[in-house]
């Protein structure tokens, strides 16, 4: 079957035999966007987190047919080195990643959180950022999430003022 959607602001139509194929494998193997990671295949670790219509989704357990007509964003579409998303900027400033494998999932989860809660408290972070990082970079991630919120809020204020 054919499935049409937007990925990182580009229209995309794919042809796929099994419409229940997890979105993760379509993104990684078919569209060659490998920033989104496979960790567990059971929505338990969050390494595969991306956005569907701005919502954080664990794509390893998300059938591809559900994105028909929707907007999908992956880490490749979140920001670029020239124009980083506030979350990526904060991640760089706090030097968060170690092995780095789980980090796109965390950054995508954080970006979605900041849309819902622009100034998350520590409790908000604890309750919403529930991905797994084996290098245990949580300490710097928490600092980076607070920093990302402040970068994002500053830029929003500036654009409102200007």
């Amino acid at each position: 079957m054919k499935i049409s959607f937007h990925i990182n602001n580009q229209p995309q139509t794919i042809t796929i035999e099994d419409q229940n194929t997890p979105l993760l494998w379509v993104v990684r193997d078919l569209l060659d966007l490998k920033g989104t990671k496979f960790g567990c295949g059971k929505a338990a670790c969050g390494a595969c987190t991306l956005h569907v219509e701005g919502q954080a989704v664990r794509s390893c357990s998300f059938p591809v047919h559900l994105v028909e007509g929707k907007k999908v964003t992956t880490i490749e579409g979140l920001g670029t080195p020239e124009d980083p998303h506030p979350v990526q900027q904060a991640w760089i400033e706090e030097i968060v990643p170690q092995c780095g494998y789980c980090q796109p999932g965390f950054m995508m989860a954080t970006a979605a959180l900041l849309e819902e809660i622009p100034n998350p408290t520590d409790d908000d972070i604890d309750n919403n950022i529930i991905n797994v990082c084996r290098c245990a970079t949580y300490y710097r991630m928490r600092k980076a999430i607070h920093r990302a919120a402040s970068i994002k809020n500053d830029s929003t204020t500036n654009s409102v003022n200007s």
Binding site: K34, G35, P81, I92, I95, P97, Q103, M107
Partner: peptide, 26 residues
């Protein structure tokens, strides 16, 4: 700052899991 910082923040395909070769099967 870590020399691999940008690769890891912008999701570059650097891991074994990301590796591929032409005409690759699974």
């Amino acid at each position: 700052p870590r020399v691999d910082l940008k690769a890891k923040v912008f999701g570059e395909h650097i891991f074994g899991m990301d590796a591929s070769m032409p005409d690759m099967l699974f």
